[in-house]
Design a protein around this nucleic acid. Structure first.
Length: 423
RNA sequence: GCGGGUGUAGCUCAGUCGGUUAGAGCGCCAGUUUGUGGCACUGGAGGUCGCCGGUUCAAUCCCGGUCACUCGCCCCA
């Protein structure tokens, strides 16, 4: 192909792609607004510490996946690989900790230096919500319910399974981690190479290894749920009771873990099998330790992020809006009249296209291909007589209408529900 | 970062056991129709066969590298 190609792992959002993208974002924005989440945005780059401090050196996201560079002023900058840290940073920076709780919705690009695959890009886009302040498990339930509603609204909930686990609070998790390392240490030689690395760096990750040998060892490993203290158990029980009450189906997944240190209690992912290896379509959890790790006050938080590209691939929807009608000049001398009429119709609230190239046959052909169903045709004769030809391209009918009566005539045949859409 | 597959027209793909002008369908443009689209017919444009190098009298085809896409690992959205 041409040498003029986008950078690896990036892609253009042409109108047809943008339609699916907007379909996801618009629905997510509306659904989260039903729960009181308000839209905000943070910069797409931050000082590197915003990500390196909370994510830690053990995380793949930081060690090998970030786009980091030094700017002209010598500052170390990182393109955001996710948005939770940025949102929490914004909360601290903006002094918003005085008005808890906070409910935020965001949508925007994220950047990870990964090997691209289907559903995995170096620049990709996420929607997400963050609920800052509450420690109660009902907050966890509410954000999961919100996530389920987003998926339902775009028509993909029935293609996903909600996997749910509890990591417990810090005390529980540290106790479990010690037990797990103790057990796995006895089997180290039999572990896969990847898992040998993880044993030192991030042992919980071994739990969801896909290696067959690892899985055999894991089968007899100590279980996370056996190490939850009473408070952690209560948190999880409250959450699951709330989900059950709302008829939100979930599946307990004891192997679902999050690598990052600030995660605690709830971890969940909506997973589909329709997208190959990139099955997680929306995932998140509780991150009570994050604010403190960033140097702010101890403020709890729960949230999730969803991959817009992955969601758009699952969703059939996505409509490209096209104008409702077009004004066609039948001859060159009528161009100015057609232009003026198009403006008048736009003043009246219609979406109007005005084809300008070629003879009348070409213009009509363009309308047809664009999916425009109504043509207002005017030539010298019509201008003189103060009328237009109103042609319906769907059924081929055509009527002469007085210009004074055009707006009301159009109003009766074009629904005012909104833009005409066609895909 | 690791392993496998693929790369021929805008799109989906044939094809050349290495040999003169590389094909099809769809799409695009034009005409049949100089005030009327869809259908049909006719014609046309469009490819350095991803890129660089090697072997060869000769490479789109074989070999190496590279880039991109793709499948899996890793990790996650």
């Amino acid at each position: 192909m041409s040498k003029l190609q986008p950078v690896r792992g990036t892609s253009d959002l042409l109108p047809v792609d943008m339609a699916g993208h907007r379909f996801v974002v618009d629905n997510a924005r509306n659904a989260s607004a039903q729960y009181g989440f308000q839209e905000m945005a943070t910069p797409i780059f931050e000082f590197t510490e915003v990500f390196s401090k909370p994510l830690g050196t053990s995380s793949d996201v930081v060690t090998k996946e970030t786009y980091s560079f030094e700017d002209r002023g010598g500052e170390r900058i990182t393109l955001r690989p996710e948005n939770t840290a940025g949102v929490v940073r914004a909360m601290i920076s903006g002094g918003l900790t005085q008005s808890l709780p906070l409910k935020f919705f965001y949508a925007g690009p994220m950047f990870r230096y990964e090997r691209p695959q289907k559903g995995r890009m170096r620049q990709f886009h996420q929607i997400g919500i963050e609920y800052l302040g509450p420690t109660d498990a009902l907050a966890d339930a509410e954000i999961i319910a919100c996530g389920a509603r987003v998926l339902a609204d775009i028509g993909v909930l029935d293609k996903c399974v909600l996997h749910l686990n509890s990591l417990g609070d810090t005390e529980s998790r540290l106790a479990y981690r010690a037990a797990l390392v103790d057990y796995l240490g006895g089997h180290e030689a039999a572990l896969s190479d990847d898992s040998k690395q993880r044993l030192a760096v991030n042992p919980l990750r071994i739990l969801d290894s896909k290696d067959a040998g690892d899985r055999a060892i894991i089968a007899d490993a100590p279980r996370l749920q056996d190490h939850l203290n009473d408070q952690s158990k209560a948190h999880f029980a409250t959450l699951t009771a709330a989900l059950d009450a709302a008829s939100i189906a979930w599946k307990f997944d004891p192997l679902l873990v999050r690598g990052l240190d600030y995660y605690c209690h709830t971890a969940f992912e909506f997973i589909t099998d329709a997208l190959g290896a990139q099955g997680t379509v929306l995932g998140g959890g509780r991150y009570d330790g994050l604010s403190e790790m960033l140097g702010g006050p101890a403020i709890a938080g729960v949230g999730w992020a969803g991959g817009i590209e992955r969601l758009a691939m699952l969703a059939a929807g996505g409509m490209v809006a096209v104008p409702q009608l077009a004004v066609v000049a039948a001859d060159n001398d009528s161009d100015q009249h057609a232009f003026k009429l198009a403006e008048q119709l736009r003043d009246a609230g219609f979406s109007v296209d005005l084809p300008t190239a070629g003879n009348m046959g070409k213009k009509m052909k363009k309308l047809d291909k664009a999916g425009i169903n109504i043509a207002v045709i005017m030539g010298g004769d019509e201008v003189e007589r103060g009328v237009v030809q109103l042609r319906n391209l769907s059924d081929g009918s055509q009527d002469e209408v007085a210009r004074d009566a055009l707006v009301s005539a159009l109003s009766s045949i074009i629904s005012h529900a909104g833009n005409n859409v066609d895909q």
